[in-house]
Computed example of a mutant assay.
Amino acid sequence: MKRFDQINMIPFIDIMLVLLAIVLTTATFVSQGLIEVNLPDAERVTATQGDKVPVQLAINEQRQLFIQEEAIAFDQLIERLSRYQDDELIVLRIDKGVPFEQFVKVLDALKSRPFKNVSIQAQQP
Rank of each mutant, 00 (worst) to 15 (best):
residue 102 Q to H: 12
residue 13 I to T: 10
residue 124 Q to R: 14
residue 30 V to R: 06
residue 49 Q to T: 15
residue 90 I to G: 02
residue 54 P to I: 00
residue 89 L to P: 09
residue 49 Q to D: 12
residue 36 E to Q: 11
residue 79 E to D: 14
residue 110 L to H: 13
residue 118 V to Q: 10
residue 79 E to H: 15
residue 109 A to I: 06
residue 10 I to V: 14
residue 35 I to E: 02
residue 16 M to P: 08
residue 121 Q to Y: 01
residue 23 V to L: 13
residue 34 L to D: 08
residue 88 E to G: 00
residue 58 A to F: 11
residue 6 Q to N: 14
residue 100 F to M: 11
residue 41 D to Q: 10
residue 25 T to Q: 08
residue 125 P to R: 04
residue 79 E to K: 15
residue 80 R to D: 06
residue 104 V to W: 00
residue 120 I to W: 07
residue 85 Q to L: 05
residue 16 M to A: 15
residue 68 Q to W: 01
residue 98 V to E: 08
residue 66 F to D: 00
residue 86 D to P: 06
residue 124 Q to C: 06
residue 52 K to C: 02
residue 99 P to C: 00
residue 3 R to Q: 02
residue 46 T to Y: 07
residue 1 M to V: 07
residue 111 K to Q: 07
residue 53 V to I: 15
residue 119 S to A: 06
residue 102 Q to M: 08
residue 123 Q to S: 03
residue 26 T to I: 13
residue 2 K to W: 03
residue 37 V to M: 02
residue 95 D to H: 06
residue 12 F to V: 13
residue 102 Q to E: 10
residue 87 D to R: 14
residue 90 I to M: 10
residue 72 I to C: 05
residue 4 F to V: 07
residue 60 N to A: 02
residue 109 A to D: 07
residue 31 S to K: 15
residue 73 A to E: 15
residue 45 V to D: 05
residue 97 G to N: 08
residue 124 Q to G: 12
residue 62 Q to I: 06
residue 66 F to L: 01
residue 100 F to S: 11
residue 64 Q to I: 03
residue 100 F to V: 06
residue 71 A to R: 15
residue 7 I to T: 14
residue 60 N to H: 09
residue 106 V to G: 02
residue 69 E to M: 04
residue 80 R to W: 12
residue 51 D to P: 07
residue 107 L to V: 03
residue 38 N to L: 10
residue 19 L to M: 15
residue 86 D to V: 07
residue 57 L to I: 15
residue 27 A to V: 05
residue 21 A to R: 06
residue 61 E to N: 12
residue 18 V to Q: 11
residue 102 Q to R: 10
residue 6 Q to I: 11
residue 81 L to G: 09
residue 70 E to S: 03
residue 112 S to I: 06
residue 50 G to H: 14
residue 19 L to H: 13
residue 42 A to D: 12
residue 105 K to N: 07
residue 124 Q to W: 09
residue 25 T to S: 11
residue 125 P to H: 05
residue 56 Q to S: 02
residue 87 D to K: 14
residue 59 I to M: 11
residue 69 E to H: 08
residue 70 E to V: 02
residue 22 I to S: 13
residue 64 Q to G: 00
residue 108 D to C: 01
residue 98 V to A: 04
residue 118 V to N: 08
residue 38 N to T: 12
residue 34 L to E: 10
residue 112 S to C: 07
residue 125 P to M: 02
residue 24 L to C: 09
residue 42 A to H: 13
residue 30 V to A: 04
